[in-house]
């Protein structure tokens, strides 16, 4: 062709193309690494696509995962949890719960409902299993599912330590399913310390200690709460309907016969 024109000019489209890409590519990599670093700080972890996961999901859902539809894929898998619940297929249900929570470890809904399904629904169903005549075995099975639910909650906390819901759910499980009020008190306390926690969680530890019969600890917990209040807030609390702290502290002071000089309410 035209040999008088220099090579770069004849290939100018490719030349300019390569030039621009060459300038952009390093910036791109650095920027993407920065984004990835920020996402790490946000505790946002991608789920690596392993062979096992691919087998578990099947072809359609795998493509969905790969095209950035992770939450939709997880939801579709989660529908199986509801089906398994209706069919009382507890082991199957547990498998699906584990798959979903590993697909979306930061979805509180999955952890919350998953643990509840196991520790309440599966456990209660095992307790009243008509096919199992031995009450000891029924109790054992029931305990087994509570333990499974607890494991789900604890993994939920591990993945979402800043989320009060996970701590509160664990506390509820200790309180309602295991009757372990000391543990329940600890987890309620943790829940109340998280950001956005609902206000009333802060008195739950004290109530739990009371239920556990540990009056000293309960008194300490109530007093701690009371001391956190400003004088105006205290005045308000005393006149409030069901002024919890006020009433509880007075009662415990009498019960524990605390000496007058150490009482919150000497009169």
């Amino acid at each position: 062709m035209n040999t008088t024109l220099p090579l770069w000019f004849r290939l100018r489209r490719a030349f300019f193309f390569a030039l621009l890409l060459g300038l952009w590519a390093p910036v791109k990599i650095v920027w993407e690494q920065h984004i990835a670093h920020e996402q790490d700080l946000l505790r946002y972890h991608d789920v690596p696509m392993t062979r096992e996961l691919r087998d578990e999901l099947g072809q359609g859902l795998t493509i969905g995962m790969l095209s950035g539809m992770r939450s939709v894929v997880a939801d579709l898998v989660w529908l199986n949890v509801t089906v398994a619940w209706e069919d009382e297929q507890w082991f199957k249900m547990e498998g699906y719960i584990n798959l979903c929570t590993s697909l979306q470890p930061r979805s509180i809904t999955f952890w919350d409902i998953g643990g509840w399904q196991l520790a309440w629904n599966a456990s209660v169903s095992a307790m009243y299993d008509r096919k199992q005549p031995d009450p000891m075995k029924r109790l054992k099975a029931s305990r087994f599912w509570i333990q499974k639910g607890l494991e789900v909650y604890l993994r939920g906390i591990e993945n979402n330590p800043e989320h009060f819901d996970m701590w509160a759910a664990t506390a509820r499980l200790y309180e309602q399913r295991l009757g372990d009020y000391e543990k329940a008190a600890y987890y309620y306390e943790q829940a109340s310390l998280r950001p956005d926690a609902l206000a009333f969680y802060e008195r739950f530890p004290a109530i739990m200690y009371g239920k556990a019969g540990d009056d000293q600890a309960a008194f300490a917990a109530w007093t701690r709460l009371w001391n956190r209040l400003t004088p105006e807030q205290r005045l308000e609390k005393q006149h409030q309907l069901g002024a919890w702290q006020y009433a509880a502290i007075r009662k415990l002071e009498d019960k524990l016969s605390i000496p007058k000089e150490k009482r919150v309410f000497p009169n």
């Binding site: 946002y44 939450s71 930061r106």
Partner: peptide, 10 residues
């Protein structure tokens, strides 16, 4: 896909 995080309420 950080959108998933937002949807999950994080």
């Amino acid at each position: 896909t950080i959108v998933d995080e937002i949807l999950a309420g994080n």
